[in-house]
Design a protein around this nucleic acid. Structure first.
Lengths: 149, 149
DNA sequence: AATATTTATTTGATATATCAATTATTGATA
DNA sequence: TATCAATAATTGATATATCAAATAAATATT
């Protein structure tokens, strides 16, 4: 264990930096590809429309849990989606604190079109990585999440 | 390989989500600990002061490369650091486009104090993770970075 | 039923990210 | 040397993140 100490310390130093850099590099890459293909939508916006389509009647709070964003962010992203006419909202008559969120035809259309691009992006980003490695990374990331809670 | 396909697809689906969640969970955790201990500084601000201390005479562009932030972000974070009196800036006489950035005594002091807290945070966040696992994660993250460039 | 508590969402304040355009300065070249 | 091109930093516009406080509605309690 004593031999592992220096390696472990170095890794600890760079791990969070590398995580941050990887996720940001991927985001820039993915967003650029969306733009290149003429899609006027961000990845976060896409994720939120998608979660509404897949879970009709979902509340904003539940959306936030699904996409790991806080309520304030969800509110603001939805505002933009309504403005872009990808979403429609009306007051939920059963609970007037909530909104009913409906994906417009245009919203459905863009989600569908962007989906294949997202799959391609993931494939490109993960090229050459073995399933075992991906599994270990996922397990490790989940451990970090639980350690920080 | 055919058997691995479904597993691989699932992992691809969740990998970026988990990465994002892990880095954000850690950030919230670390920032909360800073606040609890009364430090009025963000992690990003701390990183930038630290990079100036470790690299005297560094330019803003070089800082950006070190901490993986773009020039605009560096400019704005530095503005806040000057306002908080952790940094002083003056025009570089050799190249008037650049600034000389000096860490004040207060800046040096807070970086030092926060450092041990950051080490603790990293230790907590990575508890129970084996060096091999960390290595594989780092290697995988680096592969993602290069794949997206 | 009136009041208190809880819950869902919104809003305000501040920090950061990203892209594009601009400014100021320097270095190269015709 | 005057002009052009490259570089460093800033600024503006827009999107998101985070926390705390406010609002509005629903539920529970007395």
């Amino acid at each position: 264990m004593i031999q592992n100490q220096p390696l472990m310390e170095k890794l600890k130093d760079i791990t969070f930096y590398t995580m941050d850099k990887a996720i940001r590099t991927y985001r820039i890459f993915a967003q650029k590809r969306l733009r290149e293909n003429g899609y006027k939508i961000t990845i976060d916006q896409w994720l939120i429309i998608k979660s509404i389509m897949e879970n009709p009647g979902i509340s904003q709070q539940e959306i936030g849990e699904k996409v790991f964003k806080d309520n304030a962010s969800v509110t603001r992203i939805i505002e933009l989606l309504v403005k872009s006419e990808y979403l429609e909202r009306e007051v939920n008559p059963d609970d007037r604190r909530k909104s009913n969120l409906n994906v417009t035809d245009e919203g459905k259309s863009i989600v569908k079109k962007v989906h294949s691009l997202v799959l391609e992006n993931r494939k490109t980003a993960l090229a050459g990585i073995l399933p075992e490695e991906l599994e270990i990374m996922n397990k490790t990331l989940k451990r970090i999440i639980s350690n920080c809670n």
